[in-house]
Amino acid sequence: MTGIEYRDRLRRQMLPHILCPGCGHGIVLKALLRAARSLELDWDRTVFVAGIGCSSRLVGYIDGCTLHTTHGRALTFATGMKLARPELTVIVITGDGDGLAIGGNHLIHAARRDVDLTCLLLNNETYGMTGGQAAPTAEPGAISTTTPGGARERSFDACALAVAAGASFVARGATSLPLELDGLIARGIAHRGFSFLEIASDCPEYFGRYNQLGRGPEMLQLQRRRLDEVDRTLRAKRSLGSRRAEGPPPLRTGVLHERPA
């Protein structure tokens, strides 16, 4: 299962990476490298573009053509690059703050343009690099350094947003389902047009700590707890009528939308 070799695609001299213990982002990178390998992508014609944030740091560890840009703007660089040299496979890695707050406008326009890019948005519901501020994906009630009393705003459903904006391929994966990521990412890359993948990842260091969600292992379990079918099953169940807290919002994974570009 792990038979697909990915280590030769790593800039080994850059490791260990700067991400915190238990951060799920590394799982995504591994899946991305496996997916790229399974597609037999021409490594000289594949460019990985990222913005600013923990997730965007991932490109630095890929032994390939990598571009670490400014906060929120990775998609703009990617758009220019892809249009200037269409033979390139351009894959963007962004985060929730990077891709939905400061870069939200670029995301919806990239989706609307349907340029043949693949965008992985790693959603850990927080600004990790800056110390755990509320991201636009943080659920109402989420504790962060900027929402000490709990977030009061509604959160983005990034996939719904991408669909509405016109992306021709929209999928959601989770770090707790790493092998599913391989397939989703590979399909996203293979898709002609703008492919958007939201990947539930975890920030144990800030979001997990502030919201008492545990560390990496528990946060991975929490993701699976949130899986649509699990969530629906548990919500439908009779309890003893006690004061059990409401669970987190459900997480629907898989390809959510696909149309020819």
Binding site: R7, L15, P16, L19, H25, I27, K30, L220
Partner: peptide, 10 residues
């Protein structure tokens, strides 16, 4: 290996 976020296990 699959779940190691740090590429530390093969």
């Amino acid at each position: 290996e699959l779940l190691c976020p740090d590429f530390a296990i093969v």
